[in-house]
Simulated scan of single mutants.
Amino acid sequence: MGSVSLKIGDGTARFKRATLCSSAVNVLMLFSVLTTNLFALYAFTYSPKQHLNNPLLHHPHKNISLITEQISLIMREIDSSQRKLAKMEKELLGYDTLDLSRPNLANELKLFLQHHQLPLGKDSRTGITEMVASVGHSCEKSADLLSQYMSYKVSGPCPDDWSLAQKLILKGCEPLPRRRCFAKTVPKARSKNDFVIDDVLAMGNGGIRIGFDIGGGSGTFAARMAERNVTVITNTLNIDAPYSEFIAARGLFPLFLSLDHRFPFYDNVFDLVHATSGLDVGGKPEKLEFLMFDIDRVLRAGGLFWLDNFYCANDEKKRALTRLIERFGYKKLKWVVGEKVDAAGSGKPEIYLSAVLQKPVRV
């Protein structure tokens, strides 16, 4: 069934698409009207000459009583069908399936599921007279767990019950009811090796415009720098994931190039070069030395070389890297050596080096 619009004067009368329940009622009422008309037609148009021996012929009031009785029966059937359809509709909607009178039900759950009458009465467009809570009707099957989920201190911290919430969702109780408690916030741990981008940019005295990120992964560093009006080219390879396509999809510039190749840039073009542990080319000192000279070539005088959480397997490797950097005569604006717990869960501390170095002017 579609929708029909009738233009009447300056207004428009609209007949909206009927629902499944209303369509069934309309069909039933139409059938009742047709049946009633057939009864009336039969009662008032049959020929008396053909039914002289019919006792009802001499008692027309009995015919009228019979028709009235049939009409009453049909109307009762229509009323019963309407009640059944309304009950089915409520069951499908699900908001009347939870019995709030059952014992041991959390007060917060009762308050949330309480119906609220519309302040202006019945809505003329939807026919709704009250607002009901948004909660999955399958929650009725897990009322005890739902009551446990809604047991908390109002305006206090929410209990650590994510496993309970997940269990309810897996049982089909979705969406979960709202709660009046504060979710716990987990602060992101920041070590002394993690430098703040704005602090590093401040060391460049406002002269950071373009940068180069070596081993930039998915381009997160370039995206954060773009928020600060700094253009960063990200060098990456598609190792285990299509990083280049992802970086380009973020509106950033990927450079598909291994670190064994000479950088395809002119001398002294970048204000900032950012590198992480990807700077370690296979753990070979001679390759790292060649790479450092190429980084020095593309970085302008006064530019910043940001070594971000470079992993040092041992103290000897840290000392070797330190000696290599000192050969270039960079000014140490920031130099931090710290330890982090092994991410694999072994509990052993790992050594990381973070530094911000400024390239000197060479004559």
Results as ranks from 00 to 15, higher is better:
Thr19Gln: 10
Cys21Ile: 09
Val27Phe: 05
Thr35Asp: 13
Asn37Lys: 04
Leu56Glu: 00
Lys62Trp: 09
Ile64Thr: 11
Ser65Cys: 05
Arg76Cys: 09
Ile78Ala: 06
Arg83Met: 06
Met88Ala: 12
Asp96His: 13
Thr97Ile: 06
Ser101Gly: 15
Asn104Ile: 06
Leu109Gly: 03
His116Gln: 14
Ile128Thr: 10
Asp144Met: 03
Asp144Ala: 12
Leu145Ile: 03
Ser147Cys: 02
Ser155Gly: 01
Asp160Cys: 05
Asp161Glu: 01
Lys167Phe: 04
Lys167Glu: 11
Lys171His: 11
Gly172His: 06
Arg178Met: 06
Thr185Val: 10
Val196Leu: 12
Ile197Val: 15
Met203Cys: 02
Gly204Ile: 05
Gly207His: 13
Arg209His: 13
Phe212Leu: 15
Gly215Gln: 05
Gly219Leu: 11
Arg224Ile: 01
Asn238Tyr: 03
Ser244Thr: 13
Phe246Thr: 10
Ala248Pro: 01
Arg250Thr: 01
Phe256Asp: 15
Leu259Trp: 04
Phe263Trp: 01
Val273Lys: 10
Ala275Lys: 02
Gly283Cys: 10
Lys287Gly: 00
Phe293Cys: 00
Phe310Glu: 03
Glu316Asn: 11
Lys318Gly: 01
Phe328Gln: 02
Lys331Trp: 07
Pro349Thr: 05
Pro349Ser: 06
Ser354Trp: 02
Val361Phe: 15
Val363Tyr: 12
